[in-house]
Simulated assay, not measured.
Amino acid sequence: MNVQTVMANHRLQHQLAAQYVLGTLRGGARRRFESWLQTEAGLRHLVRQWESHLLPMAEIAPAVAPSPQVWEHIRQRIGLEQVKQEVTPDRWRFWRDLRQDLAFWRGLGLVSTAAVMILLSVLLSTLEREPTGPVSGHYVATLTDDKAQAIALITGDKQRGELVVRMVSAQTIRPDQSLELWSISKEGKVHSLGLIASAGQATLRMPDHMRTQEQAVLAISLEPKGGSSNPEKPSGPILFKGQWLLI
């Protein structure tokens, strides 16, 4: 694979950029991609896009407890067993403290959590297929709050006419309230896409206007039970929003 092949394939560019940010692009492939970043401004832009989607999600990913095998592999890689008898136990206090350091293991878990989420929700469906024509209608939006924390990941398939909403962080709302998803076109037209759950995952129909008009932003508002009475205007505050991007 050369840079000319990559730059002629929009979907492949996104796949490589996403894998680069996730850290799953390794070895020679990673070094080759980094060399292309030096000369291709388009690739650098895609990397920044994927960083903006993935990094906020990593900030709120739940801590993952490491398995005993993880610690054992660390011991083997640093040769701890070989020098164990040559030092006093206190010399290894740092490693014992590290083992109990929740922040360290939280950071270790963030990478795998974000990787699994994105690979399953965005990339996995395209990795095994070679594009046969123009880029098809696959979209993604990461909706964040006013603190730039990722709350929801939304993917869209234009061919299937589906929107999949995944709440990365569960929200607490009152029984008399609902969360409503909205699209905002580049011309400023606002449309309700339907009510969504405060936790978990839901699949919505992609309305016709999203197939024929370019959307700029998706947003979630807090509404009275049942949603806004006006399908073209939220009645409650906008809680989360994010750009609607073609991938």
Rank of each mutant, 00 (worst) to 15 (best):
T5P: 00
V6Q: 06
H10D: 13
G23K: 09
G28C: 08
R32M: 11
E34W: 01
L37W: 09
H45G: 11
S52W: 10
L55K: 08
A61Y: 01
P66L: 09
E72C: 02
H73M: 12
I74K: 04
I74T: 06
E81L: 05
F104L: 11
W105G: 10
W105S: 08
R106G: 11
S112W: 11
T113G: 01
A114R: 08
A114W: 06
A115I: 06
L119M: 13
L120E: 15
L124I: 00
L124F: 11
E130F: 05
T132A: 08
G137F: 00
H138S: 06
A150S: 14
I151L: 09
A152M: 07
A152G: 00
G156P: 04
G156Y: 11
Q159L: 13
Q159H: 07
R166D: 08
V168D: 02
V168E: 15
A170K: 14
A170R: 14
T172S: 13
I173F: 06
L179W: 04
W182S: 08
K186M: 11
E187Q: 15
G188R: 01
K189H: 12
S192K: 04
L195V: 01
A197F: 01
L204G: 05
L204I: 06
R205H: 15
H209C: 08
Q213K: 09
Q213C: 08
Q213Y: 07
Q213I: 02
Q215R: 09
L222P: 04
P231S: 02
P231M: 03
P237A: 14
L239G: 06
K241S: 15
G242Y: 04
